[in-house]
């Protein structure tokens, strides 16, 4: 069964066709990787799926609902979470508070109840804090809870951002270059972590340039070039795909 279905999605920026008639599906419980050279339209596709950009045409179906045209907070409430290519943690807030923001869709205290400090809002606050700590323990970073998130080491910031997305308890997790800027050891730990997250029942769609990571953990790989889909297959088949090799290694003109 497909958790996410993208149909004939198009997005143009001025003279650039950033996403050109792309269709694909992500099976529930799987890891799908989205690869392609720089400027292939991967992040644009992410933003279209998440509602940060409106498509010119085409459809996005998530968990049985047509979600194109929705705002990001509506998509988040429906059970999708994401990380960003350039880390977007909240400055001047602790790592724990950053992750606690991820609990927003699972809590409900509004302005009035919060101002009055009603007992149930305090219980809710404690539950949010506990869940955030539980996630930090799962990620093995609970000792960072009180540190200011944006002052942490780069690799730790990546983990905290991932924790913030996990706090949404998403059905589908979108990871935009989760290993960017990480060293080899950190990258292999990140790969293990993503596989562990998938094992808890979360479906993952990721953009990544690190081919070792992509080929090791993905169930399927989608290749984009100049906004067009050129391949969508199992990792082994992708590695032998002539179009993909051409895109990545260049054509032999000589």
């Amino acid at each position: 069964m497909s958790l996410l279905v993208v149909k004939d999605l198009c997005k143009r920026f001025g003279g650039l066709q950033a996403v050109d008639n792309v269709s694909f599906a992500v099976a529930s419980g799987s890891i799908k990787a989205l690869i392609g050279p720089n400027g292939a339209g991967k992040t644009t596709l992410f933003n279209l799926i998440f509602g940060a950009l409106l498509p010119d045409s085409g459809q996005v179906w998530f968990d049985g609902k047509q979600t194109d045209g929705w705002k990001p907070h509506q998509v988040a409430a429906a059970g999708m979470a994401r990380t960003f290519q350039h880390i977007r943690l909240f400055p001047k807030m602790s790592a724990l508070d950053n992750i606690a923001v991820g609990r927003h869709v699972h809590s409900r205290a509004g302005f009035l109840a919060s101002m009055l400090g009603l007992p149930w809002t305090r219980r809710e606050q404690r539950a949010v804090r506990e869940k955030a700590l539980e996630i930090m323990r799962f990620l093995g970073v609970e000792e960072l809870a009180d540190g200011e998130a944006t002052s942490l080491a780069y690799g730790q910031q990546r983990i905290v951002e991932l924790g913030r997305a996990l706090a949404c308890e998403p059905k589908l997790l979108l990871l935009d270059e989760p290993a960017a800027g990480l060293n080899m050891r950190e990258t292999s730990e990140m790969a293990k972590l993503i596989a562990r997250i998938r094992d808890t029942g979360v479906t993952v769609l990721l953009v990544e340039h690190d081919m070792t990571l992509v080929m090791n953990i993905s169930d399927e790989v989608l290749v984009l070039s100049y906004g067009e889909k050129i391949a969508d297959d199992k990792p082994l088949a992708i590695q032998k795909h002539p179009e993909v090799i051409k895109v990545y290694l260049g054509e032999d003109d000589a």
Partner: peptide, 11 residues
């Protein structure tokens, strides 16, 4: 701190 990220977290 980061309006787009807050929006993506469901705010």
């Amino acid at each position: 701190g980061a309006e787009d990220a807050a929006n993506a977290m469901g705010v």
